[in-house]
Write a protein that binds this DNA or RNA. Structure first.
Lengths: 245, 245
DNA sequence: CAAACGGATTGACGGAGATCAAGGCGGCCA
DNA sequence: TGGCCGCCTTGATCTCCGTCAATCCGTTTG
């Protein structure tokens, strides 16, 4: 097999077989801004990581050494107050980038919700790659921009919406998030627990539970299982989410 | 004066006199990533705008034609629910960039709090400039990154902090924001009304007022005027902001 | 299969902050 | 100088949602 090194066509072949080139999440991630021949450069600095449900990815306050791209599964990122109150600031899925909002140290913690796989990069390596690939930087800026817009929506939700409006907004937003599990029409999978939903929406588990049963009894949604539901009246749910009730 | 055009040194002189080169906010803005000779390119696409207090800059839902850099004064950006509930998602000052979290349409509205001056760019022109100036793009990404981190802090505040903790956090954060008005040690200027503070912190005016008087009577702060106060016990205020009480 | 366990639901109650209402205070203009 | 207006403060009451507690339910374990 050693001869391969001297055969250009086979080198190209080797590149085609890189992990990145067969990555199921590539199409949804910033990596899609790199053309196939650039993927080798990405592969060179990428490291595969797998996490079991509940395992920690990064911890708030630790030096920000690595950046991550999620390739499958889901991740929660959150901040804590000294007394343990938790605010989950995002649920991330395949294609999402972890570490955008990061300076010297991580500003938040991250853990797997379900078993997940990720690509890990040393921040220094990644920065170097960015400088050589303007399209990659552009893709990152684009993503940061979208996350900022999403953050503003979340601030509106947390600052001004009622419990029912928060849940409704959440149920409408969630299915659009995971590209690897495109929900059937109006079908919502909840990979996270009630407690995580509560900490994402600034509520308690009890309130989440009560609102869900109320939406169920009014016929807006139907609970198929603990972590699976169907939206029966999408228009009604949209009205509720925007406070038109 | 026509001869000037044929004299290189005078041309250089002319560039020195560009609006950007004398801009008081340049040092704090993304423009600082451009070296002096690049400023001419910025000048070419920049347009000066002045706003009186209360005047509108952009409106949520309108096509996002322009981007802005604030050069003096202050601006509030906010989102509304159909019934009029308002969430202010940010107070912006000299050097801040308006329009990062913007796709096809503006995702939020913006208005001047005080009289303000801004640089306005057509989005298309600005994108073209970015492509030629990697350092500018880098500066923008950097700024987006910081705003994302700030947004996460605000989500923690809105989702999990008490009224008193929110006010304390706000009073500690605000003085660090306006580079053109570096507060005297522990002196806080409040260019916005109580109503705006309330809509930024997810509270009502009454609660803002009550908490401020409580902080006053406990000696943590002193109200010098309606829009001016002094932090008498910074350590105590920091403890309150983090919920250590 | 029973018991234990973690997460979810449901109910009763209480409290932080919203709502409603009544002044207070300073700035502006006639 | 006085009256008006916008903004702020203060008080009384209400309510949504948090807290506390009991129970349920599906899963795991011995």
């Amino acid at each position: 097999m050693l001869e391969l090194r001297s055969l250009p066509t086979d080198c190209a072949q080797r590149r085609q077989d890189s992990v990145c080139s067969t990555c199921g999440a590539r199409a949804f991630s910033v990596c899609s801004s790199l053309d196939p021949s650039d993927l080798a450069g990405l592969d060179a600095i990428a490291e595969r990581v797998t996490l079991k449900a509940g395992e920690s990815l990064i911890r708030e306050g630790d030096p920000a050494v690595h950046l991550f791209n999620i390739t499958s599964g889901s991740v929660r990122i959150y901040k804590l107050l000294p007394d343990g109150r938790r605010q989950i600031t995002g649920f991330l899925f395949a294609g999402d980038f972890v570490g955008l909002a990061t300076g010297q140290d991580y500003a938040f913690s991250g853990e797997a919700i379900e078993d997940a796989t990720l690509c890990r990069f040393r921040k220094t390596d990644y920065r170097a790659l960015i400088r050589e690939r303007p399209l990659l930087e552009e893709a990152l800026l684009d993503r940061a921009t979208h996350e900022l817009a999403a953050a503003q929506n979340q601030m509106l939700l947390l600052g001004r919406k009622t419990a029912q409006e928060r849940i409704a907004s959440f149920l409408l937003d969630l299915p659009t998030r995971d590209p690897l599990r495109p929900s059937a029409e109006d079908q919502v999978r909840l990979p996270m627990t009630r407690s995580e939903i509560a900490d994402y929406l600034g509520l308690t588990i009890e309130t989440v539970s009560r609102v869900l049963t109320k939406l169920k009894t009014t016929g807006v949604i139907r609970l198929l299982a603990l972590n699976e539901l169907r939206i029966e009246q999408p228009d009604r749910l949209r009205d509720i989410a925007e406070g038109e009730t």
